[in-house]
Design a protein around this nucleic acid. Sequence first.
DNA 1: GCCAACGTTGGC
DNA 2: GCCAACGTTGGC
Length: 170
Amino acid sequence: MAHESSSPRGFWLVKSEPDCYSIDDLKRDKRTAWTGVRNYQARNFMRDGMKIGDLVLYHHSGSEPPGIVGIARVCSAPHADETAQDPKDDHYDPKSTRDDPIWMCVDIEFVRKFDDILSMAELKAHKSLASMLVLQRGQRLSVMPVDETHFRIVEQMAEKSARSAASTGR
DNA sequence: GCCAACGTTGGC
DNA sequence: GCCAACGTTGGC
């Protein structure tokens, strides 16, 4: 590719139920291993696609409203998801062994939390995000790639809502 | 290997 | 609470 060096990073989106692990939990912990993913496609994105430094949109699912609440960054190479080997863990998988871990994850670190959630309704209202994967009907992946153009638009939307919040004294 | 039944995710 | 979209399971 002619302009390989102009796009050095990948862009991703991860989902989490805030009751399970929210952006505030990530902010408190600074970083965490993104464990518990038990879908092969999602695992493959972490194992084969994610690189240290890639930026990640953090999505709250099952919340009211659901939407993107901040940004994280990939901060480790892929490694075994140890929760798969823990019989007491909800995500225990007896098929996963120390020799053949099956389930892999990366670590992500907190970058920032948006002042306001960007709800799916708001995102869907933005025409240039129409093809964004997370907005497609019935799409259930918990780890997925994001186009850089979509990522930048989301960043701008977050900035804009922060500015309007500041100007109205909210 | 097919396919129906079932379970899960997650928006609405 | 409903339902769409899958992934998984298991009988055949």
